[in-house]
Design a protein around this nucleic acid. Structure first.
Length: 358
DNA sequence: CGTATTTGACCCCA
DNA sequence: TGGGGTCAAATACG
């Protein structure tokens, strides 16, 4: 196990070093080929590291953490109204996963853990309009219901539910439902968004009041790649059913409006795209497109500032990934050799926790 | 004044 | 019948 950790750290360090090199190359406007090679190396590095994490999780105890509060709360989300909206009720179970191929709607879950000084600004790249709030039985904080701002205009049926975690008030559990069909989904073209006043805080009216600014702030074009830009201290994103993730989160930018540009945190932008696209290398070959300058810059910031040095995946969650039936499109983390050992006949619930310690 | 949020009421389903 | 999800009128805000 120690050897694995060393190898893992080594791989991550390599990735960091390569990222730095890439940044230097970009600054010195090196050849495009050189940059591409560096990018490929970085991707490979992280792929190895994550594959290690996967194997490790597979060997280790599998379900210990999954019986914890996080999953419990997630279940409470997904069990909300699965039938009425025709969505799969729970992506954590194999039997339900089988329904995915016949159900056009699905549920995504994102868990965001924000720093203590922040009350939860979140910009996931889409414009949301709050249409309801409900006190949930057994939950300390009410659940907020959001739908796409363009629901009426463009018939976009994407919705999401946001609820403050009982255990950790700094954690917001977000359940995404439905695919964005609005133009903002297809024209998102930027990796980061400027600091947004968007507030995800539920259960606190002060936070909800801030959300009035969300739709305007989020009308920003962002890339079609799955990009998670983290500009905060602690961030934990748990995503289930990742095969649709890029549709839901073309960009995921966390920023704090209270932090001025002089604040270091604003420079600490961790572009999840580098990892996520790495994970999905086989599925998003266009990532290497030289057009993603912004992504690269973000990543350089991340690498240079030492951000994301702790990028780890929950063992228990990954064990779920490994143990559950899966599909190729749902397995961004594993390479094909690894995937060959798995059963791809049915979809499987991706339940991966990315913990970024800034 | 237009748009977003709040919040009580209503609907649906287990 | 109760809980979760949604509706829509009232309200707030820029």
């Amino acid at each position: 196990m120690k050897c694995e950790q060393v190898c893992l750290i080594d791989e991550l360090m390599q990735g960091k070093e390569l990222a730095k090199q890439l940044c230097d190359h970009l600054v010195s406007s090196s050849s495009h080929e050189t940059n591409e090679v560096l990018i490929e190396k970085i991707l490979s590095t992280y792929e190895k590291a994550l594959a290690m994490l996967n194997c490790k999780a597979n060997v280790g105890e599998s379900k210990a953490n999954n019986s914890g509060s996080m999953n419990d709360s997630h279940s409470s989300f997904t069990n909300g109204s699965p039938k009425r909206e025709g969505m799969e009720p729970e992506v954590n179970h194999k039997d339900v996963c089988k329904k995915r191929k016949t159900v056009s709607r699905w549920t995504e879950q994102v868990k965001v853990c924000l720093g203590t000084s922040l009350d939860g600004s979140l910009n996931d790249g889409y414009s949301w309009r709050k249409y309801g709030q409900k006190d949930i039985l057994g939950a300390r904080f009410p659940r907020g219901y959001y739908r796409c701002t363009y629901r009426n205009v463009q018939g976009c049926l994407a919705t999401k539910q946001v609820q403050k975690s009982d255990e950790d008030p700094m954690t917001y559990e977000i359940t995404y439902k439905g695919r964005h069909t609005c133009t903002q989904a297809s024209h998102l073209n930027r990796a980061i968004t400027p600091p947004s006043k968007t507030k995800m805080g539920l259960g606190e009216k002060k936070n909800q009041a801030h959300q009035k600014n969300q739709p305007q702030q989020e009308k920003i074009e962002q890339p079609q790649e799955t990009i998670f830009s983290f500009g905060l201290s602690d961030l934990e994103v748990k995503i289930e059913d990742r095969d649709h993730m890029e549709d839901i989160f073309p960009s995921f930018c966390f920023s704090d409006p209270s932090i001025g540009s002089e604040n270091e945190d604003n420079n600490n932008i961790f572009s999840y795209a580098m990892i996520e696209n790495n994970l999905m290398e086989s599925f998003s070959p266009s990532f290497l497109s030289p057009t993603s300058d912004i992504d690269t810059n973000i990543f350089c910031d991340w690498a240079n500032t030492g951000l994301g040095q702790t990028v780890q995946s929950s063992e228990s969650d990954i064990s779920d990934i490994v143990s559950a039936p899966t599909s190729v499109t749902n397995s961004p983390i594993m390479d094909f050799d690894f995937l060959d050992k798995l059963d791809f006949d049915t979809d499987f619930p991706i339940s991966t926790t990315e913990l970024c310690t800034f």
